[in-house]
């Protein structure tokens, strides 16, 4: 009885305090712990340095090309990388070792590198790069030209998509702002 009265005495203030504790705790879990749990972190099979290649004077379209049909080919093939990196360097620097890893594991056996693509759209989305060539690549993609290592790839454990996959609302907002149709069939053929 005495104890209950004590609680009653601490009553409203104690409840409010614990409410706040729960509230803040949930915010911490929701904004910090939850993303850690929801996304697994993966690294690219080859530590490709966009920075080194950009410094050689290459721009995005040098490797991320369009076919004659207008189809965006996305990632370069192993064969096209091997045009510049056909043989091992035999070097000892980290960069040279990484090049040698590419040559021995992928170029010489003729295996495509299983690159992790940050922004693959679902199969039910028809996204045409050709229709968006008026924009800078970095409008939608992370600016990797200054990165010596590819950013980590975060995979959603539940949906299987990359964390960077552009959501439909983002497409729609841009379309709306540009005065472009947001009709279903524009993207869902």
């Amino acid at each position: 009885m005495e104890e209950r009265q004590s609680n009653k005495a601490g009553g409203v203030g104690g409840v409010v305090l614990l409410f706040l504790v729960g509230f803040v705790g949930a915010l911490v879990v929701g904004w910090w712990v939850f993303p850690q749990v929801l996304f697994s972190q993966k690294t690219q099979p080859i530590r490709f340095s966009h920075k080194v290649h950009a410094e050689q004077g290459l721009d995005c379209e040098s490797c991320h090309t369009f076919a004659k049909t207008g189809q965006f080919l996305g990632l370069p093939s192993t064969a096209s990388c091997a045009e510049c990196h056909p043989d091992e360097t035999g070097g000892t620097t980290d960069d040279e070792k990484e090049i040698d890893k590419f040559v021995t594991q992928y170029a010489k056996p003729g295996i495509e590198v299983p690159w992790l693509v940050y922004q693959y759209q679902p199969d039910n989305v028809f996204f045409s790069h050709a229709a968006h060539t008026g924009f800078e690549c970095t409008t939608c993609h992370p600016d990797v030209a200054n990165m010596d290592s590819p950013p980590p790839y975060h995979e959603n454990r539940l949906s299987g998509y990359s964390k960077q996959t552009m959501k439909m609302w983002e497409c729609e907002r841009c379309h709306a702002s540009m005065g472009t149709s947001n009709a279903c069939y524009v993207c869902h053929k």
Binding site: V15, V16, F34
Partner: peptide, 20 residues
């Protein structure tokens, strides 16, 4: 009991302000 409910309620309300 009352304090526990307060904690849970706080957690529940807080969760609504997170992406969970």
């Amino acid at each position: 009991r009352r304090a526990f409910i307060g904690l849970v309620a706080g957690g529940a309300v807080g969760t609504l302000f997170t992406p969970i």
